[in-house]
Design a protein around this nucleic acid. Structure first.
Length: 653
DNA sequence: GTGTCGTGTCATCAT
DNA sequence: TGATGATGACACGAC
């Protein structure tokens, strides 16, 4: 591009950290009571704040502030429903985007948020959170999960929990919930990204949320299953633009993807979408580079799940962002006058590389942690067998063959990672140490299966390798990323036959792994569907019981009504047969009748009182008599029997 | 001997 | 265009 064209071009610089920085500054100002222009009073406790911030977060404050001409010095008394306990976290949320809550005060906060109309919280947070906290059916779900998911879920769950980074939950047992993560769901079908740790040992996840959304069925991968089950639903249909997380209810440990599949996966994919724009074709190797434990947490359960595709995707996606963040691009792409090209959203590029790394990675690591917290977040699909320590014998074989550190049992990711690193290191004379670009990208998560090549097939492959004198191990052939693999082949100067064997081994091995994943997904889907069926059954039973209860109540009400009815009839000197029309009409009639009777009595009383009075006129007596006659005539047209009225009242069953 | 299950492999399609 | 992943179909061995 010529200098001239460069001069005529427009550039866009967009910072996504700017907004958070502004909010952070506002929060600091609030704490120092600087530039605060409003005092909010809740239960005799006052809070200083900025009108603009409150108004931007809350419908209530927006209305109050906009109606106030001089916001300076404004004092807003909150409704009685809003307690200080509930409001304070909301105020923090307004300034930090983080809602800190406990199981004890979450209802209070929800109530306050509802009263104050806190945007993005009600649906995005509480609809998602409360069922998780208080859903009485959870125990049942757990039972279901135990039934349907058998041992693998449970064991993987236990392991998972043990691996959760305890830093993610503070000492007070509070959990962080970041609504910004939820906002994501407005675009993508996703599940709640976070969950309080105490709820982690959840129930079967596929048993969906209150909204009956089966996350496992939302992923494109499972479209076929959806169709097969007649459950084809688009993610947007389900999640909607405004509906955030739909529920916390998860159902099945063994199907993380099932529940989170869309959640975590889609969410992470969204991240990766942005990030991948910055990736060059060598993304595999970049993924490899970045997929180090240090990024996603040393013992990330997700990463440790050898067979969890979703998990690995999450991890990888996060890492992709991490990588892209490392690219030093102070400015984004160029925008030509007429044809605007790519516009960089660059929270990454806007700041210095180091800074952007920190900011981005923190955010994404937080997301990853939240996902890990979520029992199902480790997607799934896979992975019932979880961390390779449970489940199939093959996994044991894997560990047996790859273990370097027996103490690493609790951290499969590290096992695999370290093992492979060591393996590669040995094989490549140090060029493939841990964390090096040569560490295969597919080793994080599900693809740790790729190391499970021990067995007949692997033995056969090894024999072939020896036969043709390949200077490579089967593991190297299989586990390297595409670019690394090709680069290695170039360095090896292999014969045509050797190349064919290498490619054949690699192809078979990858396909073998893919087949395993595919089968696991199928099984997960089956489990998920079973869980869903169980949930629907229990719901049906619950509804049936509720219906019976309502019928009983209806009977009681009817009895009460009948008694009243007869009493009113007797009082009005009417027979039920004299009434006609619907029960509502009859009741109205009876009420009129009662009023008229009262009026008559009153008039008669007056008449009696005035009998001796000369002012009592015959005209008034005549008028009373007319009214009485009219009333009699009206009711004499009633021919409907009480039975019919009862039928009308009972209504269709 | 037969059925079931787990697994590997191939072919095909999509990305 | 080649690499890769997903998946249906088939074959095979173990139980």
């Amino acid at each position: 591009m010529s200098m001239k064209s460069l001069k005529s071009s427009k550039f866009t610089f967009q910072s996504s950290v700017h907004s958070s920085h502004v909010l952070q500054c506002l929060n600091e100002q609030r704490k120092k009571d600087l530039l605060c222009d409003v005092t909010v009073v809740a239960e005799n406790q006052s809070f200083r704040a900025h009108c603009a911030v409150l108004a931007s977060c809350s419908v209530f404050f927006s209305a109050r502030v906009s109606n106030h001409t001089t916001p300076q010095g404004l004092v807003i008394n909150l409704p009685d429903e809003v307690t200080a306990e509930g409001f304070e976290p909301l105020l923090e949320f307004a300034y930090t985007s983080k809602l800190i809550f406990t199981k004890e005060n979450v209802l209070e906060i929800r109530n306050c948020a509802s009263v104050l109309g806190f945007k993005n919280l009600d649906k995005a947070c509480f609809d998602f959170l409360l069922p998780k906290f208080f859903d009485s059916s959870r125990s049942a779900s757990t039972v279901q999960r135990k039934q349907c998911c058998k041992t693998k879920c449970c064991r993987s769950r236990d392991t998972e929990l043990n691996l959760i980074n305890k830093e993610d939950v503070n000492d007070k047992g509070k959990s962080l919930l970041q609504p910004s993560q939820f906002q994501f769901k407005e675009k993508e079908p996703s599940c709640p990204p976070s969950v309080p740790i105490e709820d982690a040992p959840g129930s079967c996840h596929n048993v969906q949320s209150e909204n009956n959304i089966d996350y496992s069925l939302l992923c494109p991968k499972y479209r076929k299953f959806q169709i097969a089950c007649g459950k084809e639903r688009s993610c947007l249909d389900v999640c909607g633009l405004e509906t955030a997380p739909v529920s916390l209810e998860k159902t099945d440990d063994n199907c993380p993807l099932a529940c989170f599949p869309c959640s975590s996966n889609e969410y992470i994919k969204e991240i990766s979408k942005c990030s991948k724009t910055s990736l060059n074709e060598d993304e595999d190797s970049q993924l490899s580079k970045c997929c180090a434990p240090s990024i996603c947490g040393p013992c990330s359960p997700c990463m440790g799940q050898p067979l969890l595709q979703g998990c690995s995707e999450s991890t990888q996606s996060i890492c992709v962002s991490e990588v892209s963040a490392k690219q030093e691009m102070p400015f984004c792409s160029e925008m030509n006058d007429a044809e605007s090209t790519v516009r960089c959203k660059s929270d990454i590029e806007t700041c210095s590389p180091d800074q952007s790394n920190t900011l981005r990675s923190r955010e994404e690591i937080e997301v990853a942690r939240q996902l890990m917290f979520w029992p199902d977040s480790c997607p799934t699909q896979g992975s019932p067998s979880g961390f390779g320590l449970v489940g199939k014998p093959s996994n044991f074989k894997c560990l047996k063959s790859w273990h370097l550190d027996p103490n690493a049992v609790e951290c499969p990711f590290l096992q695999d990672f370290g093992a492979v690193g060591a393996q590669l290191h040995d094989g490549e004379g140090g060029s493939m140490s841990q964390g090096s670009p040569y560490v295969p990208s597919n080793q994080s998560g599900e693809d740790s299966d790729s190391f499970d090549t021990e067995g007949d097939s692997e033995s056969y492959s090894s024999e072939r390798v020896c036969e043709i004198g390949l200077p490579l191990s089967v593991q190297q052939i299989v586990s390297l990323s595409r670019n690394d693999f090709q680069q290695m082949l170039k360095q090896q100067c292999l014969t045509r036959e050797q190349l064919e064997v290498v490619h054949d081994i690699r192809r078979r091995s990858k396909n073998r792994i893919a087949a395993r994943r595919c089968r696991k997904r199928k099984l997960d889907c089956i489990h998920n569907l079973e869980c869903e069926i169980e949930k629907l059954r229990s719901e049906r039973e619950k509804l049936t019981a509720e219906r019976m209860q309502l019928n009983q109540m209806k009977g009681k009400v009817w009895q009460s009504y009948s008694g009243l009815y007869e009493r009113v009839c007797a009082e009005a000197a009417l027979r039920p047969e004299q009434l006609q029309g619907t029960n509502e009409e009859n009741i109205m009639q009876l009420v009129c009748c009662k009023k008229t009777s009262d009026a008559l009595r009153q008039d008669c009383g007056h008449a009696a009182n005035h009998k001796t009075s000369k002012t009592f006129s015959a005209r008034r007596v005549s008028r009373i008599s007319e009214r009485h006659t009219s009333l009699r005539v009206t009711h004499s047209h009633s021919e409907v029997s009480l039975t019919e009225i009862m039928t009308t009242w009972t209504g269709p069953k």
